[in-house]
Every structure is written in C-alpha cells, then in structure tokens.
Design a protein around this nucleic acid. Structure first.
Lengths: 126, 126
DNA sequence: CGGTATCCGGCTAGATACTG
DNA sequence: CAGTATCTAGCCGGATACCG
C-alpha cells in the first residue's frame, strides 16, 4: 500500500486530508487480498494451504500479497522453528475488525449475482 | 469489470463457481470507483462537478470509470437534451444497496488511520 | 459541457528457476 | 515447507488533442 506513506513523518498540518474510504480501498487493492482476508476470517492458514485455497496463485505473488497485508497490520505471521518449516497466518485485531466489510461485500455480491443471472435469463435455485 | 463475462451465456453448470466477494471486488476495482460511489451516495452529480470533486482526474479516465459502473448497473446516466449539454449521474437501486459497504469501509478506514497515527506518535484530536 | 481517440509509462500479476 | 530472485506481459491510469 504505497500510497499511504508515513515514513517521512511530516507534520500533521501539512498532511493532505486523507480519505478513510480511499485508505481502505488502498489496503485491499490487490488481486487476492479480499479473498485472502476472507479465508483468514474462517481459520488460521498455512502458506501451502493458501496455494490450494487460491487456485492458480504463484508462490511469489502469494508471498507479496501476504507481506503487504502484514505490513498494513491486517495479518499476523507466526513462524514455528521446526523442520520442515511451518508458518501460520491469522488475522490481527485490526484484521478482525475488517470482517463486517467482508460480510457486507458478500451480501451485496450475492444480490448482484442474482440480478445479473435474472438479466441473462438464468434460473436461480433458491 | 472484464473478469465477469456473461456474454457467451454458457450453461450455468459449466460456469465456474463465482465468489460473491471476488465479484464485488471486481466491480469496485478501479482507482476512482469507490470515491465516485460515495459522492453519488450524497447527491446527484454532473460530469464537470465530478472533475472538481476528484482532483486530478482526467475526462478520459472519469468517463471510463463512470461507464464501467454504469455497465455494471451501479450508476444511472441521465442525459438532458439541452444546449449546453447536461448529464446527471446518480445511483441505481443496486448502487444504493452498496452504501452499507461504503459505510463499513469508512468506519474501518478511520480506525485504521487512528492506529497508524498512534503508531507514528501523532497526537489525535478527539 | 461532456465527452472521444490515441498514445504512453508504470505498476503488478504471473511465470520460472533456485534455496534454506 | 516456505519461501526469494528475476524477468516479462498486459492492463490501466494518465496526458493530450480533438469534437458535437
């Protein structure tokens, strides 16, 4: 989430007014982040499990998406010093507070699907 | 939102299982869409007004974001046949149902901001 | 006023090879 | 198992010029 950069720590007066909506959007911008957060809202997940949950994702991009979520304080990464290695990902408190958004998105997404299915004359099984 | 394509109308059985979350994410993927939807949740807006609401956006990209939202059924475009031209954008019913997500995103974004400000030793005025 | 048409650059997803 | 390093391709935002 490069657009939100406190590194320079400029005085608050000189900061641009930051929009909470844009901020939220930036945090979850990324092809896999929303669905990653949803999986983590269900349970703790290991790295390799994610590759099975997210068909087609490569190690490289999975690592990056997880790191960015970690950097933004959404995800906790727990490393167990074992052989073979074991790393577990889970939601932080901040990440858990994001769940209402996931729920709202899921509700709306289903409404959207129903409407689009009706428009295209699909039968919708209730 | 090119990833969700019903154009070919394949049988429902052959459709991939579509995730409502991913669907929602795809609809609002776009640099300006969330903030556009928020402005439209406040009031009807004309094209030129948007350019003032969204500092730095160009006509081209504004048009594209609005068209995509229109194509996805989120935004209504009302053209008044006057000279000079007048076009008003507003939320459709589907668009209005999206407002709870905007609200949840705003709440979370503010929490996120507070946490990040505290982490960087900023004083937060209550 | 409210757009199109066109071109361009950067970001980011994705693929592949390698590693502790 | 859980990554890192490197490279590439394509999309998308942005700029600019023009139009009814």
């Amino acid at each position: 989430m490069a657009r939100f950069n406190f590194e320079g720590k400029p005085p608050l007066e000189k900061q641009e007014v930051i929009c909470p909506l844009t901020l939220t959007q930036n945090v979850i911008a990324g092809r896999w982040k929303v669905i990653i957060l949803w999986h983590l809202s269900q349970r703790t997940i290991r790295f390799n499990e994610f590759q099975r949950c997210l068909p087609g994702i490569s190690k490289g991009i999975l690592t990056r998406q997880l790191r960015e979520l970690e950097d933004d304080g959404m995800v906790h990464r727990e490393v167990y010093k074992e052989v073979p290695p074991k790393v577990e990902y889970s939601l932080t408190e901040l990440g858990k507070r994001f769940i209402p958004i996931l729920d709202a998105m899921e509700v709306w997404g289903k409404e959207f699907m129903e409407i689009k299915l009706v428009e295209h004359n699909y039968y919708i099984s209730k």
